[in-house]
Amino acid sequence: MRTYMAGEASMLRPKGAGETISKAVSRGAGAHLGRTAGRPAVQITHLRKTYGPVTAVDDVSLSVAEGEIFGILGPNGAGKTTTVECAIGLRVPDAGTVSLFGLDPQSDRREIHEIVGVQLQSSAFPAKLRVGEILDMYRSFYRQPADVTELAEALGLAGKRRDYYRSLSGGQRQRLSVALALIGRPKIAVLDEMTAGLDPQGRRDAWNLIERVRERGVTIVLVTHFMEEAERLCDRVALIDGGRIVALDTPASLAARARGGKSIRFLPSAPFDDRLLTGLAEVTRVEREGRHVVVTGTGELASAVILTLHAAGLEARDVRLDASTLEDAFVRLTGTHLNEEEEQS
């Protein structure tokens, strides 16, 4: 649960940092427009994938609109990576269909590889190649590649182009991997744990980059187990657990659904009877935490509570409003804490 001080706008996001970022990465939309217009960017129906006795993905269906940032969220082993690897043609599904802009990842491999940029969770590059050499090589794979200089700058790798891959830190390797996913100006970017291993600043830079890339019409599929990342970036999120989608909605709706409401916590200026508040339509529960009162409810809960107290000659001090978050939704829907998963991994 995330706690906001009263009056603080919970959804305020710092914007506008990093204006230089990547005109480079974004022209992908032009390349195959004729063939692909008007179709969902990603369409997965009844996807199923087993490894021996283990069912990794079980009847997953989802659809991602063009230009959307779509999050796939879940604990380790939930089937997130398998789902996207089937989507990009790295794995062959046991059942179900996948289509990217109407193309089949298995039979239309060549077209798919032109329009999809991929960042895999576990990929390395030869230790003794320089960053610039790797970027140049990957650039040559595509017919309308991004500008390497701009891309390197956007990802904070501009000063690293002469460095050997083996000398890069984990975060720098991660940023190179993201750069390579975007270097072909893809129509769809599939990023698997994009910000794993990045420090908070690196994570924010990567988020800024993703938002800029999206502004130019690139569809982004983001596999993550960072709540903050999903809440900040994603238009919609699929929560996956045990190979199944347990919820699929906007981050805000998922969070609201998690608790069916919000709560207000305050210190009353004088004792009062709970029935004063339990009679209100907005209120579902009143609890005491020491001298503090926690009221849970829906709708315009805060103003209803404060106005009622005021009318009774009471004052609410030390007010805190709690909004439930995606994390709450996650815990409620899967019974798992993402953070615990993170520590184990």
């Binding site: 990009i88 043609g89 790295l90 060549r110 590889h113 032109e114 999809v116 991929v118 895999l120 576990s122 990929s123 390395a124 590059f125 030869p126 990957y138 794979f141 595509y142 390579l180 072909g184």
Partner: peptide, 11 residues
């Protein structure tokens, strides 16, 4: 190291 796998997602 997954270098071949990464390449197989490119053209």
């Amino acid at each position: 190291q997954g270098i071949l796998r990464r390449l197989s997602t490119t053209p």
